[in-house]
């Protein structure tokens, strides 16, 4: 769990959480107006749809989720190198996984888009069959827990996503493009460096710069 989400979770039982959450949502409402260029559903609604599927096996909720995410997941898979027919199959597999895993979805840990991104990412890796992927197990007895954080620094996963969207839009083109390459071209740092004819160190430092800017932007918003 990320530090921000850990804060959220640790504050779960306190009254201050409710306060923090409602102010985060109010803040978030402003964010989505500026930062939803896709005209999609607002993240809060998407979170509730996944929960409705998880709790009640609600097929209508699933249809609405599908409507929003299936075209994005399919586009992601095409960007990652699948042909359209494969992408359709894999997208269906990923959406099945969304149904199966919906019960474990916890919006305080990750927003709907982030959660579904990780499902699509793992589905694609599985499909390649050349590799498995090792995953952190949150229930691992060896897990070292995060230190509890103070409740006043709580921020919701949604609010963070909203801030990130704005921060990405503000990145210089070159840095935004490298991030896109890293996430959507299935390229490691070394492969990006080879393709762009840049030294590996340069790619690493530009990505680090981009991530640093994003982090600073998100922190300044707090």
């Amino acid at each position: 769990m990320c530090m921000l989400c850990a804060m959220e979770a640790s504050a779960r039982t306190t009254v201050s959480r409710r306060l923090a959450r409602s102010s985060a949502l109010a803040h978030h409402g402003r964010m989505t107006q500026q930062a939803s260029p896709t005209g999609g559903r607002v993240p809060d609604e998407l979170d509730s749809l996944i929960q409705a599927v998880g709790r009640n096996q609600d097929k209508q909720a699933f249809r609405r989720l599908f409507e929003h995410f299936a075209p994005r997941v399919k586009a992601y898979l095409i960007r990652m190198g699948s042909d359209p027919a494969q992408a359709e199959d894999l997208m269906q597999e990923a959406m099945l996984m969304v149904w199966r895993r919906s019960e474990s979805f916890d919006p305080s840990q990750a927003g709907a888009s982030t959660w579904i991104f990780t499902i699509a990412r793992n589905k694609r890796i599985d499909s390649l069959r050349r590799e498995r992927r090792a995953e952190l197990d949150p229930e691992d007895p060896s897990l070292v827990p995060a230190a509890p954080a103070s409740a006043d620094s709580v921020i919701s996963a949604q609010e963070r996503a909203g801030q990130l969207r704005i921060a990405i839009a503000a990145l210089p083109g070159e840095q935004a493009r490298l991030l896109q390459l890293a996430f959507y071209e299935d390229k490691t740092h070394s492969e990006i460096a080879a393709d762009e004819r840049l030294p590996l160190g340069t790619v690493k430092s530009r990505l680090r710069l981009a991530l640093g800017r994003l982090r600073k932007h998100v922190e300044d918003e707090r």
Binding site: S36, Y76, A110, I116, T118, A147, A157, L164, R165, L179
Partner: peptide, 30 residues
């Protein structure tokens, strides 16, 4: 990550970035 909350938090933020980029991707109709 099993041992390191700091890097877990970092990975969560990077995955959040992946989700945010997914939101802004040009959709492809099923």
């Amino acid at each position: 990550l099993t041992y390191c909350p700091r890097c877990r938090s970092e990975v969560d933020e990077l995955e959040c970035l992946g989700g945010t980029l997914l939101d802004s991707i040009e959709p492809s109709l099923p």
